[in-house]
Simulated scan of single mutants.
Amino acid sequence: MTTLKGTTLIIDEHSAALMAEADFPDRRQVTQRFGDLAPDGTTSTVALARLFEHPRIGLRFPRFDKLLADGGFGPFRILLVGQDVERWTPFGTFDATSRIGTGIRAIGRTSYAYGQGMFIDGRLVATAGATIVLADKSGPLTLPDELRADLAELRLPGTDAAVASQPDPPRRERQYSPAAATVHARVGDVDLNRHVNYIAQVGWYDEAIASHAHDLLGEGAARKLPRYLPWRYRVTYLGEVHYPGTYDIGIAVSGHDEHTVHYELGLFDSGRCLGTADASAPRGKLPATAFPDGKFTS
């Protein structure tokens, strides 16, 4: 998938938290890999984003597929414009199995959103969602009736229609963030669409938060950095990210208490914002001096 500057669906991200596995119209088993485990031994939030991806892409839309086969729609691209993922409790062991439920939680005029839940022994441990737009060179396309009918059959109970939104304009300005980290695109970050994959970008946000925490805590904290990595992300994709390239990630704090830090992040290429993310992570031993007026010191 690729990305598009434009619409994002805003949904009730916690709706799946009130649902049982049986409420999801599609349910599949996944096996956790060794590479899914973070240094603290639990499944990382970035790995969760990838584990949720496969069942989501595996959903089939028979009416829409027939429309495409008959030449009744297209050409178009499938664009991921936003995703969210949240780990509700630490979990994860190598070769452990879990089940992922997938459905549709919002249908708009030009976009739709998936809702997903991960279950272990019937217990919800993580949720996720992704917002999709169909577009051609002129921009987003109105969803065809055939696709809307397929989506309606996969609708999750108790979900409401979505509304369109984008990050507030100040979030797109580099000067909004008092701190920053530099990341370098790697060839392994590039997917079949020849740009940096959207899940790889979530990993970049992890790197930025860890790098900044390391700067605040000093060299002696390096082995403790996994405890500062986020358990929750909401990401908006505003433009394509390419290899090779060097990018800045702006870092600000929108709120904090004695246990949690809420981050606002932005991905920038020479001052142009290519994406934003909101994240929640443990505060750990980050000092109070790191949060003057709710923002990090630079």
Rank of each mutant, 00 (worst) to 15 (best):
Y243F: 09
L134A: 04
A162Q: 03
D84K: 00
R123V: 14
E21I: 08
D70A: 07
G266R: 08
Q201L: 08
I132P: 05
G275A: 09
L147E: 09
A179R: 01
G35Q: 15
E264Y: 09
A16T: 07
G266T: 13
G122W: 12
M19S: 09
S298I: 14
G255S: 14
F73M: 00
D26G: 00
P140G: 10
K137C: 07
E153A: 14
D206R: 06
K295N: 11
N193D: 15
L217V: 07
G255I: 03
R283I: 00
L265C: 02
G115T: 05
L217H: 05
H14M: 05
V190M: 05
A277T: 09
A106Q: 04
W231H: 11
S98V: 11
G188T: 14
P230G: 03
T43A: 11
L286R: 00
T93I: 10
F61P: 05
T45I: 03
V261F: 01
T110W: 02
W231Q: 06
A210C: 07
A213H: 12
F34K: 05
T289M: 01
V261R: 00
H195Y: 13
H214T: 06
T182H: 06
R99Y: 12
D145V: 08
R194M: 14
G129T: 01
T45P: 02
D12F: 01
Q29E: 15
L265Y: 09
D95T: 15
S15L: 04
